[in-house]
Amino acid sequence: MSGNGNAAATAEENSPKMRVIRVGTRKSQLARIQTDSVVATLKASYPGLQFEIIAMSTTGDKILDTALSKIGEKSLFTKELEHALEKNEVDLVVHSLKDLPTVLPPGFTIGAICKRENPHDAVVFHPKFVGKTLETLPEKSVVGTSSLRRAAQLQRKFPHLEFRSIRGNLNTRLRKLDEQQEFSAIILATAGLQRMGWHNRVGQILHPEECMYAVGQGALGVEVRAKDQDILDLVGVLHDPETLLRCIAERAFLRHLEGGCSVPVAVHTAMKDGQLYLTGGVWSLDGSDSIQETMQATIHVPAQHEDGPEDDPQLVGITARNIPRGPQLAAQNLGISLANLLLSKGAKNILDVARQLNDAH
């Protein structure tokens, strides 16, 4: 009898209710805020589980004197976190989706994509230029951005401005803007500013005609071990179906173009009346040469937790077992079709030249 009692006690200790789920994140304040929001949602869904947040620095956090596009290494903000995932030191990792490459290392998958916040870019102005827009900034004003995508589009749109690289986390960039006289304004992701509670610093939100956004911008991705079915089931509740389908289309477009950090590629997606609209573009580094096109596809946005595919093969690095396969494939095909259209119009040449120029500098 006593033996059975011990077995029952052991089973209770090993039951999922007692389990601590370890969540990996970057150390920056924004990353911690984003991770806290994901953990809060998981806690609400699984009140019996405990969650421990483990923060670590990544290569991208450490190399702050070089433009991201020049470092010449993929997975700048993800490699150390993936290493911890691989060694079973954490069970899942919360990322900004735009930091996750469209091809993940073997053994990993994006197990959830959370509801997207505003994906557009924002302009934050130096205190002396508050009330201005990019259009009304004085001639030769210097605007800071760490992104080739932003610089290429904005140089084309605002030729009277000069664009220079600015690195560091959000706090560091804002301090550089406010305390030094080098920059009249800087460009940042609206979602990051909003998550930090800095709505009052948003001086201008850039519309798609001015600057399309990065693939996955404004959404959070939760990376897990691809074979860890328990954790895949656990994080599945975080999937937002519309965000998922938009981001599958965007990531398929980028992957098929073979774009990345070192080339200016941008997108804009919208879901309306059962249609998914995808606009994508590529630019030369100075913005003088560009190709942009829009395509659409009829896609039914499923309700969360309709029964999805059981075999769960990944699409552009994403596993969404609780979302039907048909809409996911339709979104992926839309991204591939748009990429093929741009490639047929000469996108590869623009991107190759951009890559060579970026590598040469």
Rank of each mutant, 00 (worst) to 15 (best):
S37A: 14
V38M: 07
V39G: 07
V39R: 08
T41W: 08
L42P: 02
A44N: 13
P47H: 10
P47F: 08
Q50H: 10
F51I: 11
I54K: 11
A55T: 08
T58D: 03
I63S: 10
L64S: 07
A67I: 15
A67E: 00
S69E: 13
S69G: 10
I71P: 09
K74A: 09
K74L: 06
S75I: 07
S75H: 07
S75Y: 00
L76D: 12
T78E: 01
E80R: 09
H83V: 10
H83M: 13
E86N: 06
K87F: 08
E89C: 08
V90A: 07
V90K: 01
V93K: 00
V94Y: 03
V94D: 03
H95F: 13
D99K: 02
L100G: 01
T102A: 12
V103H: 00
L104R: 07
G107H: 08
F108I: 14
F108C: 10
T109V: 15
G111R: 03
A112Y: 04
I113R: 00
C114P: 10
E117D: 12
P119V: 10
D121A: 02
A122D: 04
K128T: 15
V130E: 15
K132N: 15
T133L: 08
L134T: 05
L134Q: 02
T136W: 14
L137K: 02
S141T: 09
L148V: 12
L148G: 14
L148W: 06
R149L: 02
R149W: 03
F158S: 08
F158P: 02
H160L: 10
S165D: 02
N169L: 09
N171F: 04
R173D: 01
L177F: 06
L177I: 07
Q180R: 13
Q181I: 08
Q181K: 10
F183L: 14
I186R: 02
I186P: 02
L188W: 02
T190W: 13
R195M: 02
M196S: 05
M196H: 12
W198M: 15
W198E: 13
N200M: 11
N200L: 05
V202M: 12
Q204W: 03
L206Q: 03
P208M: 12
P208Y: 14
M212Y: 02
A214P: 09
G218F: 00
L220W: 05
G221T: 07
V224C: 14
V224L: 15
R225C: 11
K227A: 15
D228K: 03
I231T: 08
L232W: 08
V235R: 00
V235Y: 04
G236Y: 00
G236V: 04
G236N: 00
D240W: 02
L244S: 12
L244H: 03
L244E: 01
C247F: 07
R251Y: 03
A252E: 08
E258M: 02
E258T: 01
G260D: 15
C261K: 00
S262T: 00
V267D: 00
H268I: 03
H268D: 05
A270L: 02
A270N: 03
Q275T: 00
Y277A: 13
S288T: 09
S290C: 04
Q292H: 14
E293R: 07
Q296N: 12
Q296R: 13
A297S: 05
T298A: 08
I299W: 04
A303W: 02
P313V: 13
Q314W: 10
L315A: 07
L315E: 01
V316F: 13
V316L: 12
I318P: 00
A320V: 11
R321S: 11
N322C: 15
N322W: 14
I323E: 06
I323Y: 10
A330C: 15
L334G: 15
L342H: 15
K345R: 07
V353N: 15
N358T: 15
D359F: 06
